[in-house]
Simulated assay, not measured.
Amino acid sequence: MKFRKAGIAAASVLTLALTVSACGDGGKKDKGDSGSTGGSDKGTIKIGIKYDQPGIGQKTPDGFAGFDVDVATFVAKELGYAEDKIEFVETPSADRETAISRGDVKFIAASYSINDEREQKVDFAGPYLLAHQDLLVAADSDIAEGTDLNGKNLCSVSGSTSAQNVKKTIAPKANLKELSTYSECIAGLASGSVDALTTDDSILAGYASQEQYKGKFKLAGLKLSNENYGIGLKEGDTKLKDQINKALEKMVADGAWEEAVKKNFGPAGYKNEPAPKIGDIVK
C-alpha cells in the first residue's frame, strides 16, 4: 500500500517537472521571436521624420525624400529592414520626445539637434551632421555680413530662436517678419518682400534646392551656431544606440553619406562640414 502511494507521488512530480520544462522552453522561444531590435512583431520598423522640410525630410507624391530620409533608410537596412519594411511617421519638433517615450517610433531622424535639455529625456546616436544657423538671400544680394540686415526684412517662422539670435547678436535693427512656415518665407524671398531667411543652413539649402528655386538663392555662410543632428531613441536603449552608431560609421566609410549630402543639398551650393565623428558634439 505504501509502495503504491509512493509511485503515485513520483508520477505527480515527474508530470509537474515536464510541465515546468515545457513552459520554460516556450518562454525562451517567445522571447527569441519578439527580440529583433528596432522592429515589431509584424517585421516592420517605424521611424520618425519631418514631412515638410525639402532636402531634409519631405513627403512627396512619389514617396519620401531628403537627407534624413536617406540616413534613416541606410540605418534601417543595417538593422535588417528592407525599404518596404520601413514605415515613416511624421514627427513635428514639439512631439519628438513624446513619440519616442510612447513607443510610437523606434528612432527619429528629423533635423534633431542634440542639446542638454533633450538629453535629459531621450538618448542620441551620432551626430551624423553638423549644421549651422545661417542666412539665405537672393543670388544677386549684396548682404555679406549680418550687419547688412539692419533696416532690412528678416524672415523666419513664428517663435523662431534663430531670428531672435540674429537680432540679438548681429542685426538689432532688422525688421523681423514671423510667418507660419519657411515655405512662406522663401516665397517672400523670391518675390523680394523679404531680404533674408534664417534657420539651419541644411534646412535653408534644402528649400533652395527645390526645382523652382535652383540658382535663385545663396547661403551667406555666417555659421551663427552649431547644430549637431543626432538620431533620437528611447533613453537607456544602449544596444540600439550602438547599432545605429555602427551603421552611421559605415554610411560615411562607404561614401553613401557624402552622396546623400550632394544629392539633397548640392543645388544650393551648400558647403557642408565633414561627417562628424560619433560622440563628437561641437558646442
Score class of each variant (00 low, 15 high):
A125F: 11
Y128F: 15
V194A: 04
S156Q: 02
G215A: 06
Y128A: 04
L154E: 00
L219H: 09
L197V: 15
S202N: 14
L204M: 11
E117C: 04
Q120G: 13
A205K: 07
K218I: 06
A190E: 15
L130S: 01
A144E: 14
A208R: 10
V122H: 01
I170R: 07
A208C: 11
D116C: 06
L154S: 01
L197Y: 10
D134R: 01
P127E: 06
Q164S: 11
G192K: 11
D140N: 14
L130N: 09
S191M: 09
R118N: 07
C155S: 09
A131L: 03
T169R: 12
E145M: 05
L197W: 05
D123F: 03
V157H: 01
G215D: 11
T199H: 04
G215R: 07
L176S: 02
L189F: 11
A139W: 03
V194I: 15
C155L: 10
D123V: 01
S141V: 08
Y128I: 04
G192W: 12
S160M: 02
D201A: 13
S180I: 12
G192H: 12
E184K: 00
A174I: 07
S193R: 09
A125S: 15
A125V: 12
A187E: 15
I143F: 03
S209H: 08
D140V: 04
K167Q: 14
D200A: 14
N153G: 00
D123M: 05
K214F: 05
Y128M: 03
Y207D: 03
G159Y: 10
A174W: 05
E211K: 15
T169E: 15
E178I: 02
D195S: 12
L176T: 05
K214P: 04
D142C: 02
E117N: 09
D200V: 03
N175T: 08
D134F: 05
K216Q: 15
D200Q: 07
D116Y: 13
F124L: 11
A187N: 14
N175F: 01
L204N: 05
Q212Y: 03
Q133H: 12
A196H: 12
A196N: 12
N150Y: 07
S180A: 13
Q164T: 10
S202W: 08
T147R: 12
I114F: 02
L219N: 08
S156D: 00
T198I: 05
S156H: 02
K218C: 10
G126I: 08
D195E: 14
N150K: 06
Y128W: 15
A220G: 10
G221H: 01
S209E: 04
L130T: 02
E184I: 00
V166Q: 09
A187F: 02
C155G: 09
D195L: 06
P172F: 03
E145C: 00
G126L: 08
D116H: 13
T147P: 00
G215V: 11
D134A: 04
I170S: 04
L154C: 03
C155A: 14
L130Y: 10
L136I: 05
